[in-house]
Design a protein around this nucleic acid. Sequence first.
RNA 1: GCCGAGAUGGCGGAAUAGGUAGACGCAGCGGACUCAAAAUCCGCCGGUGGUGACACCAUGGGGGUUCGAUUCCCCCUCUCGGCACCA
Length: 952
Amino acid sequence: MQEKYQPAEIEHALQKRWEETGAARATEGSSKPKYYCLSMFPYPSGKLHMGHVRNYTIGDALARFHRMRGYNVLQPMGWDAFGMPAENAAMQNNIPPAQWTYANIAYMKQQLNRLGFAIDWQREVTTCKPDYYRWEQWLFTRLFAKGLVYKRLGTVNWDPVDQTVLANEQVIDGRGWRSGALVEKREIPMYYMNITAYAEELVNDLDTLQGWPEAVKLMQKNWIGKSLGCEVCFPIVLKGSEGFAESAEPPVLKVFTTRPDTLMGATYVAIAAEHPLATQLAAGTFSQNGLGNTPNPALQAFIDECKQGSVAEIDMAKLEKKGIATGAFVRHPLSGEQLPIWIANYVLMGYGTGAVMAVPAHDARDFEFATQYALPIRQVIAPAGESAQDAAPTDSSSAAGAWSERAAEPGVCINSGVYDGLSFQDAFEAIARDLSARDLGARRTQFRLRDWGISRQRYWGCPIPIIHCARCGDVPVPDESLPVMLPEEVQVTGAGSPLAKMPSFYECYCPRCGKPARRETDTLDTFVESSWYFLRYCCPDNTQDMLDERVAYWCAGGVDQYIGGIEHAILHLLYARFWTRLMRDFGLLDGSAFEPKKLDGAGKWAQPKPDAVRQATILQDGQPFSLSEPFANLLTQGMVIAPTYFRLNSEGKKQWINPADVSLKLDERGRPISAVGKEDGLPVAIGDTEKMSKSKNNGVDPQALIDQYGADTARLFIMFASPPDQSLEWSDAGVEGAFRFLKRLWRLVFEHVSLGLAVPLSDTPQALDNLSADLKNLRRQLHQTIAKVSDDYARRKQFNTAIAAVMELLNAYSKFSEAQSGANDSADSALLPLRRALQQEVLEAIVLMLAPITPHISAALYAELRPSRAQLETAIPLNFPKVDEQALVQDEVELILQINGKLRGSLLLPANAERSLIEAAALASEAAQRHLAGQTPKKIVVVPGRLVNIVL
RNA sequence: GCCGAGAUGGCGGAAUAGGUAGACGCAGCGGACUCAAAAUCCGCCGGUGGUGACACCAUGGGGGUUCGAUUCCCCCUCUCGGCACCA
């Protein structure tokens, strides 16, 4: 055995062997239970960053742990390869996006292998390759035929100088990031996916996800935002138009409200600037009884003003509330009162009907707006707990005081005529009923969730398989013409869509009538690729079908463990849940659909199916395979965050500087006060601490860490630094400690092995009866540690505490060994063989417990400890240690002694001591006597196995 | 602005079901070994008072429930994530 720990040497040797033997390959149809361990695939941005290392180390640790526990494990990896950064790189470096992407993939794949992840690379999926994206084109055409994909206008950020659509990220302070031009909203035709059709199911099924964090389920629930309320119709009137034609049905303005109980407090209505009524009133095309047909330039000016700025909701929400009275009115559906129609920038066209009834007394936003524009505020709800009499009736703008959150809470109706005195629920019912009777409203369920716009006016994405024909309309590309290939040689300029400038791409013939037609040049949102990649891992080699029955084997009951960043808690996970249901409803995830398929000629899968696969396909708990929820257990990893640094360039734009190129000046307490560039020594501004990202250039490259210390130290350190679901501010202080620990482990094993191997104590049960106290104690700690570590891996998924427990055990081992070497020549040397056997048992267990996290050193050390058993040919050759319950038994326990809840001492008592004995011992103790000073205790609290509290 | 999460020594963090606050590690200080250095090993290490035993204070801030609160409840501050075209 080598005396020194040399990570580079052992890691390279093992990685080579694992690769040669296909150690991480997963095959269907073993008798073991399956465990599908999935990590979110990376965007190939160039290099791995610390977030990747953290994510994939967690995944690998869980995969290896379960393999050691006897599972048939699948751990795949792939590339979320379409997206904007490739186009930006193309512009910056004049390199085609495809070339840039494939180069990054090659580099990052090598980095992943250097970290020793047990990935089954035979299942690698790359989303920018036609053999992947062809299937989403294929499904798109079917979704389109069923109306689950449809076309309508959508609003985008428009850069008027570059004449191009911008992503929200490309809009900085309301300006285009390249041109600096003020961004405008523009409506263009786009394709949408009808996710709202599944809103009910998506929100209801959250309750079935027992393996998901509550926070994620809550965020999804709020995002979908199911609310019960009323649709209320306000008939539109123009001043002076009443009485002309009473019989004529006036057009109505529809609003949605969750608070119909406040309807009598509505003092105006507000519509979004994009609302059709706003457009008509401004243009003078809304007319009634000969009125309202003159254009209103002031309205038009306000609507145009609202068109400025980005479409991002966060920007909209931060806007100062502004509005304009249209001069038009509506009639209150119950009171008949006339209320003014305002156009307001705080009303979103995307939610509900794009119009709201405003109740300033009981809604914070309406209150702010009404206060600003001196609109009436009418209190109609008495706060719960206060009687209706106590609340002063108000009906004037002068009553406007400060807003109190309590005003928005449900209470009892006042100032509401026939509804006075009714509770929220009763008023809701009564008003809904009365509206319904007048045909001016009805109960309605409204979702906050909007349909998913999937068109992108960009090049590096999956082409949308539609052909626009002047005669036939939008025609889906027929199966035999799929895939629509994305040309890989292209000029990206940042102005407009490259595909729209390539006649060779868009010129085509209509598949229906054969006449010249134009191919769609938009590409799909990259969230589409990441919505189903985990299913394709099961069958990436199938050239005949999108999915096959191997999905039924690996995804029975869902992916067993999904691991990824908390930033994906809403969008990605919701889209994946949605797509899984779409594929289910198209029979793609249906056991019976797999069965009769012809699979011959498709390559590998033409082989007879293993029984386990067939059974998974046909029967699962007596039901045919079907999948709705893709991820049974979800671990949302906290962000790896780092400070951002920047300088302003001559145009006033921020140039982000990587933390590696910055040196900090610290104050006495170690806090950064200023920063300078390492190269030039010039000052650098310190920005926020944010998630590592390409756009803020604050990612830390783990490569240096791996080069210096090896993969095991990098893995150990990042897992030890904090629990996986917590965000982690990057600092490499402490890496040294992880490395030291591995060196120390190596040395202790070396010292043990040098004295000759022993048979572990656990293999000689007859010896266990003769253990001395110190042997018993160490062995108890060993098995307590095994129990704790197993629980941390399997249930808690908290690795920092598992590592800490192993470190403690190694400390105890070290003390024990030292004491032993002093005792060797004394009388108890008869115990020497037992001591050696226990040391062997402890070291083997430590090495195995660490194997999921530090697989290389573990495999190498186990080979020294158990040369006969170590099968280094396979990736995870070893069984996880088992707890010996007998070793945990304790004769005496320490109880904490408290007096009035304060720690005053401890008691050593038999583990089975009765309450009376515990109380007596507590009262008799020296500490109790001192504090009691003759007083009689009021009561004594005994918590078995933990503490005694004497209350005075 | 809205939704979600978090805040514990000089630093990362532990305390799993309301029961010893600070495990484990980093940094620091002292010592051993060494010609010396590195490496390694041993000891100390939240604050205040005390020679000491010990006492008091302390888990972002303020209040509450409890024999007992880092943990539960209410209010507030700050930080992080998401907000539909970053992925």
